[in-house]
Every structure is written in structure tokens, then in C-alpha cells.
Design a protein around this nucleic acid. Structure first.
Lengths: 233, 233
DNA sequence: AACGAACGAGAGCACTGCTCTTGACACGGT
DNA sequence: ACCGTGTCAAGAGCAGTGCTCTCGTTCGTT
């Protein structure tokens, strides 16, 4: 009963996996807008309507790809972080940033799906928030580790964040970087959004004809952002 | 002869303008993917094929919208900058950043078209580079003005950029911020990409359920980035 | 063995961008 | 004043899309 039921289920999960796999390959080559249910079905030797047995709509297939993407970049970031000595906070920061950029360059269309313009008419369901913050959690851990080790030394170059920020900072402290001051949380946001800002500019074409030596500049800029948070050199 | 020819021409430019106008409105409500030539034609009481007399393809219409968008945000930035006292470099910086964010929030789909994921299969023609850097030119002027006034004082918190950056810095110096050091150019890139990184996170949903007090935090973060460049407080 | 749920195939709807042909109109030179 | 020429909108049509519905079949449970 369970065995047979699993047999049926097994075919189902296998086909579901194959659909997402083909879809991901299409996504990688054609981009999100070029993702076609019919093309996926064609490649599977199925008829288009059969896909709807597995994904009720194109958006649901997209959601699956998005979740996969978040997990993929999250895993890449986790691996990069894990390869560093725990107390080498600066090295971990650089490794994590490089992992983000590296994954983005290797999977530009998937990255665009995650961090680019939202697909019109598509609303990310709640299931995506978990995988969506895997990378950010790693990032927060580096900062709170540095703080715990007493090596976090943010340079005194700017006023403190506004009091209204405390509520937001509380939320972030609860999830990923406990005991860190409002000031450092705000710097962390600047640095993290800054990293993605650079990657976006590079990937979405704003650096074209402007910045060519991108890897070197990325490393340097990310180092500066690390210093801004207070990571030791 | 000229008058009549101009009459013809006048109808043509008028219709072209009307097409882009309707298209922009559709873009604003539906997003780039929802922009449909047929829908535009329908709204104009024309048949779809007639549109092709004015725009040879959907991509060309998109290009027109992109150029318009770059000009719009560029103009918004220019106006914000012009409203400040010339020697209030910090105020100009804040005003320019707010203008970017304000325009992005007011025209999310157009902003996504400019700074979000590139439209698949669409390659920006060379005509777009001029309008594309209007905002950045203003931004560079603020920094070089501050430098000329001798008030630029970047905090010494990080190593200098790598020597390989000089070639890229030369390019930027030539276009928008002459006589500025490699170090400051690199900081300028960090700040400028950082601003768009924050706006992207806010607009593309990464701040959802995380950061709520966005205007305040934006002002503060942008101020910090200004300090990083060396703008006086 | 029998019933019901799950499934693939196929036709069909409304839509898209785009092409091609056709007929109407206005313009400019004779 | 007329007639070629170029411009234009209209319409049909092609290939493709997401999605729905129906129809047999097949599989799993009772």
C-alpha cells in the first residue's frame, strides 16, 4: 500500500523534477520571459496540457524555479563561508561577496529572477521567504561573530541612524544578528545592499563601456564596505 | 510644398508621440512584459499592423520608452540638484539620491526597465547611452565640485584601489569628474551603486517584511555613503 | 473485481508579435 | 487638371503563447 503509493508518487516527483530541470535550462538560455510551458512539454515529449497536472500555472513553475534559485545561491554562499576560518571575519565577508557575484555571473537569468525586476503579475508566495534569506543569514552571522569576538570596530564617520530605525533593527537582530547595535545593523544594510548594487550594475549592463576591470574593483569595493561595517583589515 | 510636407510630417510625429504616450501608460500599469502593440493600437482605434509604420518592432518602441525613461529620471535628478545651493555639496548629494528614489517609487515599472533585469532578447542600441548617464553626470559634478572647493575629505578607513583600476578611473574622470583621485572615484562608484542597490531592494521586494521605515533609513544610509566619499557633514 | 482518482492526449479559446497584400488617399511634377 | 508615386490603414494570416475542457485510459485503493 505504502510501497505502491510511493511508486505512483515516485513517478510524480521524478516528472516534477524533470520539468523544473528542463525549465531551469530554458530559463538559463532564454530568460524568464522565454520560459514556455509548451517548449518544456515538447522537450519532455509530452503535450502542453499535461504539464498542468504538475504545475497548476506557469507562475507556480516560476515559483519553484525561484525557490531553487534562492537555495542555490544560499548554498553557494554557505559553502564559501564554511571554507574560511571561523575567526577570519574579513575573509569570510570577502568570500561570501565573491560567492554572490560568482553565482550571479554563472547564472545571470536566475539571478535576475531573484534580484531583478519582479515578473509582472507574479506575486511571490510566502514559501519563498525561507530560502530567500539563506544568504543573508550567513552574512549576518559573520557580523555577529565579529561582534562577539570583539573585533568589530566601525569607523566613526557618520551620525547614528534615526530612532525610527530601531523597530526594523529589532526585526533583523531577532533573525540574524543578535546584540548588534542599531548603528551596525544600518551599516550592514548599506554594505549588503551595496554588494547587490554592484552586482546588479555589472550584470544589468550599467558598467558597460564604463568599468572593465570588474573583478578587481569588486574585491576592492567590497573590502571598503566591510571596513564600513567595522570588519578588521 | 514644404508646408504640405510638414503637414504630413506633423501628423506623423503627433501619432508617434501618442503611441509612446499610450505605451508608457500601459507600461506603468502592466509592466514591460505586459506592453502589447495590439493593445496600444486598440486604444488608439487603429489596427495593430498600422503601428509598424511608426515603430518597426516592439523592441524599437521599448527603446523609445527607455530613452524617455532615462531622460525623465535624469531630468528629475537635474532639477533636484539645481534647487540646491551650489556649495551645499552634501545637500545636493542628498537631494539627488532622494530624486532617484522618488522617481523610482513614482514610476516603478519604468525604473525596472532601466535598472532592473534587461528585457530578454533586447539589446540596448547605442542611442541610449547619452540619456542613460544624465543622472550620473549630475552626480559626478557634485563630487568634482566638492573636490574643487577643497571640502572633499574621504575618511581614511580602507586601502587604496588596485592599480588596475586606473584605466577605468581615467574613463570616468574624462566624462564626469576630472582631477579626482582613483580612491575617490572608487568610493564614488561604491556610493552610486549603493544608492541603486538600496532602491532596488526596496522596489524589487527584498525589504518586504524586513525594513518598513524606508524613507528614514534611505536618508540615513545615503548620508553615510556621502560621508564615505568624503562629502562634508 | 470494481470503483474512483490521477493521468496524457487532443481540440479549442483568446491572445501575442509580426508579415504580406490590398485598396484608399494625398502629394508633386507635368 | 491630371496622373504617377509614395504613404498609409486595414485585413487576413502565420506561428507561437497560457490555459481550459473533454475524452479515454491507466493506475491504486477499497
Amino acid at each position: 500500500m505504502n510501497a505502491s503509493r510511493t511508486a505512483r508518487e515516485r513517478v510524480r516527483v521524478e516528472l516534477t523534477r524533470e520539468i523544473t530541470e528542463i525549465a531551469r535550462r530554458q530559463l538559463a538560455t532564454e530568460g524568464a520571459a522565454g520560459l514556455s510551458l509548451r517548449a518544456v512539454a515538447r522537450e519532455m515529449g509530452m503535450v502542453s496540457s499535461a504539464i498542468y497536472r504538475y504545475f497548476p500555472s506557469r507562475d507556480d513553475l516560476l515559483t519553484a524555479l525561484i525557490v531553487d534559485g534562492y537555495n542555490a545561491i544560499g548554498e553557494a554562499v554557505e559553502r564559501a563561508d564554511a571554507a574560511c576560518a571561523r575567526d577570519d571575519h574579513n575573509g569570510r565577508w570577502l568570500a561570501v561577496c565573491r560567492a554572490v557575484r560568482g553565482w550571479a555571473l554563472a547564472h545571470p537569468h536566475e539571478y535576475a529572477l531573484l534580484y531583478g525586476s519582479p515578473v509582472p503579475g507574479y506575486q511571490a508566495p510566502q514559501d519563498t521567504v525561507g530560502p530567500a534569506i539563506r544568504d543573508t543569514v550567513v552574512y549576518g552571522k559573520i557580523i555577529s561573530d565579529a561582534r562577539d569576538a570583539g573585533v568589530l570596530n566601525p569607523p566613526d564617520i557618520c551620525p547614528p541612524p534615526p530612532p525610527s530605525f530601531t523597530a526594523d533593527a529589532d526585526r533583523l537582530r531577532a533573525v540574524m544578528m543578535p546584540e548588534v547595535s542599531d548603528d551596525v545593523v544600518s551599516r550592514a544594510i548599506i554594505a549588503w545592499t551595496g554588494v547587490f548594487g554592484i552586482v546588479n550594475f555589472e550584470l544589468f549592463g550599467q558598467f558597460n563601456n564604463v568599468v572593465e576591470n570588474r573583478a578587481d574593483l569588486f574585491d576592492h569595493n567590497v573590502t571598503v564596505l566591510g571596513r564600513l561595517i567595522g570588519l578588521p583589515g
